[in-house]
Simulated assay, not measured.
Amino acid sequence: MAGTSQTAPEDRGGDMSQDDRPDPATEAFLAHRNLLFTVAYEMLGSAADAEDVLQETWLRWVGVDLDTVREQRAYLVRITTRQALIRLRTLGRRKESYVGPWLPEPLLTAPDVAEDVELADSVSMAMLLVLETLTPTERAVFVLREVFGLAYDEIAEAVDKSPAAVRQIAHRARAHVAARRPRGVVSPAETRDALEAFQRAVETGDLQRLLDILAPDVVLLGDGGGVVQAALEPIVGAGSVAHVLGRIAAAASLQPAQVNGYPALIVRLDGEIDTVVAVRIDDGLITGLYAVRNPEKLSHMERETALRR
């Protein structure tokens, strides 16, 4: 691996040849970088860990003889998947000692993510939490097959299983996800309408309006990670959730934003991001509220993250 660097190309501008063009390995990596990040993020639910996976992917990629690579995209996805699986198992052990509910790391996303309905659905907070209930291999197979449309034989190489085994895993994962995902397809417009009504109710302190938009069995999950204050257990029921939300209205300002492909709210205190609130909607009502407060998870809310399929 002569001439390789310990730093991924986006951080150092790439390995430049004499004519100021990236070398072939760097060029291929940069061409697929956003795709690889999306694969890793969907498998991990953590942007920080996804970035680490990309670093590991780069270090392995620059040691590959490109003349032996038939399809660069598939090869890079395979490396990324393997590294993400390793990281996913480590992350699972870390979550066991996490203080309070664990939520995915929110991403400020560009409008084009919302335009790709399948991509937006796959990175939504609600879907990422559903994916958390899969085994690492099931999650990898589901993401690669259902989101990125990889062939079973390509997935088999990435997860070290036979194509027949991958088909069975994919079938099992699809059934598992179908039983737990939101009951109907919710458009960004529906989410935006619900959030606007929710925002008005919180800002005006209109309890009845708030209760009208919350499902009776709504669940509020707060992720403070033991770093900032957040409920250590889920808060269940419209009345209890409305009571908690009513307390934030006086001191905070609410700002609409595009988060993980869907409309969400940024809660600011003294101009600083304090909380990111995403929602799950079923049958026109908010059934899930996901409030990420852990400051270690808010670093990707200052600039848009590019996601690609």
Score class of each variant (00 low, 15 high):
R12G: 15
R12S: 15
Q18D: 12
D19P: 11
P24S: 12
L36V: 06
T38C: 09
L44H: 01
D49M: 14
E51S: 11
E51V: 08
L54R: 08
T57P: 13
R60T: 07
V62C: 14
G63V: 05
V64T: 00
R70M: 14
Y75I: 05
L76I: 00
Q83G: 10
R87C: 13
R87I: 15
L88R: 11
T90A: 15
S97W: 13
D116W: 01
E118D: 12
L119V: 02
A120K: 02
L131D: 06
L134C: 00
P136G: 03
R139E: 08
V143K: 05
V143R: 01
L144P: 01
L144F: 01
E146W: 04
L150N: 05
D153R: 09
S162G: 07
P163K: 06
R167D: 12
I169C: 08
H171S: 15
H171Q: 15
A175F: 13
A175R: 14
A175I: 06
V177G: 05
A178I: 13
G184V: 01
P188G: 04
A189L: 10
E196Y: 06
A197T: 00
R200I: 01
A201E: 10
L221H: 04
D223S: 03
G224N: 09
I235Q: 12
G237W: 10
A242R: 04
H243Q: 15
L245C: 06
A249G: 04
A251E: 06
Q255N: 07
A257R: 05
Y262R: 07
P263G: 11
A264E: 04
L269K: 03
G271R: 12
I281L: 12
I286N: 04
V292E: 13
E304W: 03
R308A: 09
